[in-house]
Design a protein around this nucleic acid. Sequence first.
DNA 1: TAACCTCGAGATCC
DNA 2: CTCGAGGTTA
Length: 247
Amino acid sequence: MNLYCLNPICPDVLKAKLEYWVSKEAMDIDSIGPSVIEKLYKLELVKAPIDFYKLSILDFMRLDLVKEKSATNMFNAIQESKSKPLSRFITALSIRNVGKETAELLTSELPTLEDFKNATLEKLINIDGIGDKIANNIYEFFHNEHNLQTLNEFEELGFNFKNSSALQKTDELAGKTFVLTGTLQSMTRDEASDKIKMMGGKTSSSVSKKTSFVIAGENAGSKLDKAQDLGVIILNEDEFLSMVGLK
DNA sequence: TAACCTCGAGATCC
DNA sequence: CTCGAGGTTA
């Protein structure tokens, strides 16, 4: 069972949400990390994600962490994040049990923020992969007065949710599920994952008997052991690159 | 047979 | 968490 801090203004929870907002799987604002957030929070410049978007370059310089150049980078990174895909924004909201994968699933059915606000419980529950828990979490989030007010503020601050241009997909890997483990030399795991999806395959984060292939990079961990236990086909980097036509 | 329950497997969350 | 299989109930 999971335990959560029940204090609604618990500083550690608030800071964790801010860190999650900028994290790679959410808004991916690389130039801002835990130490900047710690200072912004301490100076009461940022208490919630919306506050990031009200900061000036001078505010960053006030932190005594960086000079003008880095401060400008941080400011720009925040402004640019306003055009990230809606799925990233939904992920970043920290709705319980709604992470990257669920957010992507949701935005494929609900392409605009309005769709989220208007979605009925029934509509949410009828989305494949969404059950009553997540449906309720989403519904409640988008029917909470404070949340709606904040969402309006985001929109007023210029969020426009550019969706990534849909490149042409193929179906060579249709029906195949891949699990990546370890470090690849020629690309990151995200890049490999994108390539697999572009070719119609799926990626998963855990190995099971439904896994078609495990791609093992350097220092592969327990997923490799599990693949061996289950007799799942294991590919090294070269074999994977050949399979996807990159070598 | 529909409604309800529990449980395991698979996948994801943070 | 979600889902579906399989058992139980009425």
